[in-house]
Amino acid sequence: MFTQILWTQLKWTRIPLAVLAVVTFAAPALAWRLGAAGYQGAASEPMAIMVGFSAIGTVLMVTACLAGFVLVAHVWNLDAAAKHVYALSLPLPWSRFVAMRFGAGALSLLIPTLALWLGSLFALMMVQVPPTLHTYAGTLALRFLLGALLAYALSFLLQYVAGRRASAVLLVLLLSGVVVTFVLSVLGYTRLLDTIGHAIVEWPGPLAVFARDWKLVDV
């Protein structure tokens, strides 16, 4: 069963997955090319290398979020096109079907992750990393996978719980966040806001994976 669900997942999302794989594979080399272009140092200088790869973190964070969202939305729409009648008529509990759909999507995130790891190794071959610096191709790929999985899980939860109202629910959540932040700021509860913010983005907060710099090269 899972093999077939995974197969349909890969078939339906093959184009977004291919685009994501190309982006994540090319991102490290492009970051280096564009980032180091304005820097006057050599490709072996620690500062040149650090600056050259500095843009990759933001690109990968955005890509990870997009990956999670796109994979969920695409598959949901195909299931929803027939009002989920086929999925509901299959001889397995709905929760198990949804779990398999989630698993298949999560597994497919390995493709852009693998592409990122290979792309990072390829980009690092373009520079001579001095002994004072360390490379983190594997760690960056893992961080990307965790970020994408988190975005995927949140999108999945929202879509499969709220269904067709997912966009409206998301909008309400975002607006509520803005209103609460505004009200607390006006009332002078800035310390409370800081505490909430830290609890969300600092380890072990739910968005901690996005908090730190995503670096391919560091001291």
Partner: peptide, 27 residues
């Protein structure tokens, strides 16, 4: 149970052969 609904409920991007293989996996 074999179920045939009122309207087409199968995944429309699959081919006939793929739909048969998908369906077979559950029964």
């Amino acid at each position: 149970i074999g179920f045939v609904p009122e309207r087409l409920h199968l995944y429309q991007s699959l081919t006939v052969d793929e739909a048969i293989r998908f369906h077979r996996a559950f029964y």
